[in-house]
Design a binder for these strands. Sequence first.
DNA 1: CTAGCCTTGAAC
DNA 2: GTTCAAGGCTAG
Length: 442
Amino acid sequence: MDYSYDTDLEELCPVCGDKVSGYHYGLLTCESCKGFFKRTVQNNKRYTCAESQDCNIDKTQRKRCPFCRFQKCLNVGMRLEAVRADRMRGGRNKFGPMYKRDRALKQQKKALIRASGLKMEATPPLMSSPQPDYSFSTALLSIPIPAHTPLPAQYPAYPTLASHAIKSEYPDHYTSSEHYTCASSPESVPGYTYVDQTPPGLTVPPLVLEFVRCEQDELQVQSKISAHLEQDTRLAAKQERLSTFGLMCHIADQTLFSIVEWARSCIFFKELKVILIPSSLPLSVLMDCFHFTLLPEQVCSHTHVTPIHTPDVNPLKTNIYSVCLDSLKDEVHSQKKINKSCHWADILSKRYYYVTLRYVKLLENQPYVESMYEQVNAALLEYTLCAYPQFPDRFSQILLRFPELRALSTQAEDYLCYKHLSGEVPCNNLLIEMLHAKRTCI
DNA sequence: CTAGCCTTGAAC
DNA sequence: GTTCAAGGCTAG
């Protein structure tokens, strides 16, 4: 059976699109970009762009502008600190568990695709290969998004490289237990030991598969967030640690960019010409924040910021988390009740619900989308019935969560506005801008 | 300078 | 002993 439909997509270097040769400096890249990144950082190279710093980087043109190539390396999440200052060879670094977990997630995704491989072959893909349409997503949003810089230009050209020490991981690795304690050890990372728990014979609806396929590479999103947080932490010289709220704002901002990326490849957006994102924003952000709460230590161990779960007096946050965590606890409880081994990976599979939920919410209240809504619901129903035959009411339980989430979403929005008015939201926060845009639209 | 291949060595 | 992501080497 040929699974190239999915695997080909996964094996492209996020910088230039060449074939990946493995994990390098934080994520899967090709051999040449690995070498390029290493040379640039090790030799503290400075490049300049002859054009307007937005050169297209692909396999054939990657040599033409090292400036833009390096910018892209940083933007996709390559990690400066993975380049060793002491040039020590061999061995492993602190990213090991992260790589392993990413592999596990990819395998899980692949297994889902494989589970209905025949179905996918029998029916043509729901959409043609997603060629990023930057103008389209820009038009969707009511605030300007730079067309060719998917991430905020927080990396001031080269000062980054020159001014901050390129820190070797080894001192930390050998002497510091602060940022790499048992909290981020493999055992405590959900899904770490996951291999392939797709139930045998599981049929995943093509629509759900399409959603899953469109999902952002999680490791990349996390890397971007970590890298940006590190940058911001460094810039805030007097402040050693970001507040929990500050951290959430940054995660939310990065999440927004992910949503824009995601929307570009969403099959329904191809058909819609109306602004949908703002109305669904709070929930999407909430979902993604929830997503990250699963791995707070992992994010924080690389960013030297206060872990999200640090006791905090923010009642809203507690509320959001308690709902999400209750949901997870229910899952654990249900699994135990039927005497089935409860694995973190099972819980991670909830991710697919949320992927679908996001679509459902996104399409709500739009004239065209009623039929789409039904399709999404049908796909979700089919998936839950196949994946969890022992819980026939799972679908309805998911739907029952909607009002609660909707209420939380509104609370989150109000809370952010309050924070904004009291001047506590970091400058240039995209989330605030979008919420503002939404309110002025109404 | 690039990029493919080689060597190294801690974690498993 | 095996893995595989670091750094190193070197034609082109």
